[in-house]
């Protein structure tokens, strides 16, 4: 596979075309807006926390295939996790995308998240992939606020 096919894997293109959990999540307990001022991508992440774990996550907004697919994959990946699990997952994905070391991706464990690793070869696009995850972290923080990936 060339770099471009690594970036636009079928998994990414599928999530872009038919994003999971796209739309307002009602009711929700936490939300935050993420914005990339340089390119104009804008995502709103909403989650519903119940008995200490995320019962559901959803997103709205507009952005490129990478930012949409990443948000879509995230809403699948964090469902059912407790706070610690979510924080760990966010950390893993950010490490996968921005870590110095070439990541070793466990397909079995990471599922569709593994498809995001192709973004590493396209530095200008890394912020597209991290936007949803930073926004989720902001939504669950003490003081939810809008985040910016610049």
């Amino acid at each position: 596979m060339d770099d471009l096919s690594d970036l636009y894997q079928d998994i990414i293109l599928g999530h872009n075309k038919r994003p999971h959990h796209y739309g307002e999540l009602n009711p929700h307990t936490h939300e935050a807006e993420g914005y990339n001022p340089l390119c104009g991508d804008r995502l709103c992440i909403q989650v519903r926390e119940k008995d200490g774990s995320l019962e559901a996550a959803g997103f709205t907004g507009e952005g490129c295939a990478i930012s949409k697919a990443s948000a879509s994959i995230m809403t699948d990946a964090v469902k059912g996790l407790d706070r610690e699990g979510v924080a760990k997952k966010i950390g893993e994905v950010l490490e996968l995308l921005t870590g110095r070391e070439e990541p070793v991706v466990d397909l079995m464990e990471q599922g569709d998240i593994a498809a995001l690793a192709g973004v590493r070869k396209f530095p200008p696009r890394v912020k597209c992939a991290t936007l949803a995850w930073h926004t989720l972290a902001a939504a669950l923080s003490e003081e939810p606020r809008s985040v910016s990936t610049e």
């Binding site: 636009y8 390119c39 952005g63 490129c64 396209f122």
Partner: peptide, 19 residues
Amino acid sequence: HPHDIGTILDTEGVAIRAG
């Protein structure tokens, strides 16, 4: 999306602006 267009064009050596 324009950014996806820009990235793919770049791999062909074509520089445009997207956004």
